[in-house]
């Protein structure tokens, strides 16, 4: 059967993707970020993850407001890098796993009553692509398959923090009902504190970020209770996307082991990384 072996929370920052492509891993302004991912990548290699379920959001790359899904997921064979306005990143399309993905779609819709928009063609932007090559090798080819699960955290009304938590629980059910042996990591990306618009542009809150990273490990229910307004006041308007980390945590065992974390906030965004081991599977 399918097993969740790891949960990962990670920021997704477009400038970090560009820095990666430009080979700035050791530049002083970027080194604390990229170095922070290395222990996670090493641990994940040993954990032999087959598929990563990415709870992320699209940023005006693939989805437009003509039809804007609250929850969408990919069932494709592969996912090309999106053109976000500066040309697609020089990365190979990321492999998918249609059989597993369709099983997840079946389970989410039928068993858990999460009515997903199901996508057979989907380009992926920095919401997925920024953390991906920092966690799994992409050369000579991708060492991971993905299932993108895109969440509307852009156009209100947004799904609630609690809804993301339940989505995580539903994903666990889907993974564990898969008949084949597959080792799965679940990721929630986005945040941490940042605000990118209005006079409050540049707002950040390191204390909130650090408390969030603590609480999501040991007291996630507290974060599930918070409203969008709470997230936006404490973390900045665009930090409301932090609710996607709750999707990851909801998919994990109640007790988890903290394997690794990193935090770096040099400019606009509090950039966090959290790697959790599922204790039910070890």
């Amino acid at each position: 059967m399918g097993r969740i072996v790891a949960g990962i929370g990670s920021s997704h920052v477009p400038a970090a993707g560009a820095a990666f492509d430009q080979g700035k891993q050791d530049a002083p302004e970027w080194k604390p970020l990229f170095d922070g991912y290395r222990p996670a990548m090493d641990w994940l290699r040993e954990a032999h993850v087959d598929v990563a379920i990415f709870i992320y959001n699209d940023h005006g790359s693939e989805f437009f407001f003509d039809k804007y899904p609250t929850f969408a997921m990919g069932v494709a064979k592969s996912y090309p890098p999106a053109d976000e306005g500066w040309g697609p990143r020089p990365l190979d399309p990321v492999p998918g796993d249609p059989g597993f993905s369709w099983h997840v779609a079946e389970s989410l819709v039928r068993e858990s009553e999460f009515d997903m928009t199901v996508c057979q063609e989907l380009s992926v932007d920095h919401g997925l692509l920024m953390p991906l090559p920092l966690l799994w090798s992409h050369q000579p080819e991708w060492d991971i398959k993905v299932v993108p699960v895109a969440v509307n955290v852009v156009q209100h009304p947004l799904p609630t923090a609690r809804r993301l938590w339940k989505l995580g629980q539903a994903l666990r059910k889907a993974v564990e009902s898969y008949p084949e042996d597959v080792r799965v990591a679940v990721l929630g990306t986005g945040g941490l504190s940042h605000q990118l618009h209005g006079e409050r542009f540049g707002f950040r809150n390191e204390e909130w970020d650090r408390r969030f990273m603590e609480r999501i490990v040991s007291r996630p229910e507290e974060l599930v209770e918070l409203s969008h307004h709470d997230y936006m006041v404490q973390g900045g308007a665009e930090a409301v996307e932090m609710i996607m980390w709750l999707g990851m945590r909801g998919a994990m065992s109640p007790e988890v082991k903290l394997v690794h974390q990193n935090y770096y906030a040099p400019m606009l965004t509090g950039m966090g990384l959290l790697l959790l081991e599922d204790t039910a599977s070890s």
Binding site: V154, Q155, H156, Q195, E199, R200, H229, M232
Partner: peptide, 13 residues
């Protein structure tokens, strides 16, 4: 509730 944060224009309907 969502409208009350200063310097913030929540992207709603």
């Amino acid at each position: 509730d969502l409208a009350k944060i200063e310097g913030t224009y929540v992207f709603d309907g």
